[in-house]
Every structure is written in structure tokens, then in C-alpha cells.
Amino acid sequence: MNTKLINSAAGVINAALTQNRTAAGIALALDSAGMLMTPETAAELAGLRARFAASDHSVDEDPIAFALTDKADTDDVRPQVRKLRALLAGQDQQVQAARALHVKYPDSEHCQHDAEQWPCQTLTALGGLGGAS
């Protein structure tokens, strides 16, 4: 029995009960808190933690972040990790494409793409300047 996990789950359940949630609402709250896993997911997480523990990284580092590094690139890397890497690469390309659209008019303080005040909200949300600033 893991007392820490039980107390954490009890806290989530109590918070859901104070909001008059149904049993399904309580289950949803537990799932949202990451406390519900299939046996396969739990086994995969345990395997990642074991690989991380055997590595030369400090315990403060994130095992999931480690799984995405080149050091974790071995033949047994899970297909989900490869999918995640592909997804992140695709999202990075989409962000770069969006940044390229949002450029400042050379003679105005506005964005050429959406005519908002420079820098536009889209560019600010993407975290930086696009093309010509």
C-alpha cells in the first residue's frame, strides 16, 4: 500500500465530492489528476523509471524528458516516444510557418498578415518575432 498515493487520491475524491460530482465525475477527476492507468501504461512507466534510474542522470530530472533525449535512443524505445517526437517536430514546423506569415509592414507599426498593432497577438503567443521586425 502506498500511503502517499492513497492520500492524494482521497484529496482528489474529497474535492470532487465538495463539488457534488457524480461517481463518473469523481472518476474523471482522478483521471485528470493522472491517477488512473491501465496495467500496460503503469508497466511502461515503471520501465521508463527503471531505465532512468539506471542512467547517469540526477533523480531531479524528468524520466519522460529523458526518454525523449538521444541518450534514450535505443532499439527498445517505445513507439509512443517516436510518435511524440514526430508530433513535436510537426508542431515546430507549424509554429515556424505561422511566424513567417506575421511580419511587420516596413512603413507601419502593424502586422502584414492580420493588420494588428506590431507585434501582433498571434506572434506574441507564439513566443517571438517572425520575419522582418
Rank of each mutant, 00 (worst) to 15 (best):
D70M: 07
Q96N: 13
V95D: 11
D73F: 10
H110T: 14
F52S: 02
L88F: 09
T124E: 12
Q117G: 06
S55H: 01
R99G: 07
L84E: 12
P119M: 04
L88T: 10
K83G: 11
S108W: 09
T122D: 14
T122V: 13
A97H: 13
Q121D: 14
L101G: 12
Q112R: 13
A89W: 04
D114F: 06
Q117T: 10
V59Q: 11
F66G: 01
H102F: 11
V81E: 02
Q117R: 08
L68W: 03
D92E: 15
L68I: 05
Q96S: 07
H102P: 08
V77R: 13
D92M: 09
G90H: 08
D75E: 14
A67H: 00
D92N: 14
A67Q: 01
G47Y: 07
R51C: 02
K83S: 13
A46I: 05
P63E: 02
E116L: 04
V77Y: 00
Y105T: 04
R49E: 12
K71L: 14
H57T: 04
A125H: 13
A125I: 04
F52I: 03
L87Q: 13
C111I: 05
K83H: 10
K71E: 15
A54Q: 09
I64N: 05
D73P: 00
H57E: 14
V103A: 13
D75M: 02
A86N: 12
S55N: 02
H102K: 09
D107Y: 09
A115L: 13
G127M: 12
Q80F: 08
S55K: 01
L88G: 07
Q80P: 00
E109H: 12
P63M: 01
R85N: 07
G127S: 10
P119D: 02
Q80S: 12
D114W: 04
D73M: 06
A89C: 07
L68Q: 10
T69N: 11
H102L: 11
D114M: 05
V59D: 11
G90R: 12
Q121F: 07
H113S: 15
A86Q: 13
R82S: 11
A54I: 01
A89P: 10
D56Y: 00
A86V: 03
F52L: 03
T69A: 06
A72K: 00
A46R: 08
D70P: 01
H102Q: 07
L126W: 05
Q121G: 15
R82E: 07
A72F: 08
T69H: 08
R82T: 12
Q93H: 08
G127R: 12
A53V: 03
D73Y: 04
T122W: 03
K71W: 04
T69Y: 04
L88R: 14
A72L: 02
R99K: 15
A65L: 15
P106F: 07
C111V: 08
A72H: 09
D60A: 14
R49S: 06
D107L: 13
K71H: 11
Q93K: 13
A50K: 11
Q117D: 12
H57S: 09
P106M: 08
R82L: 11
E109F: 07
A67P: 00
V77A: 07
E61Y: 01
S58H: 02
T124M: 15
L101A: 10
H110I: 10
V95K: 14
A65I: 08
V81Q: 03
D114C: 15
R51P: 00
Q94M: 15
A42T: 04
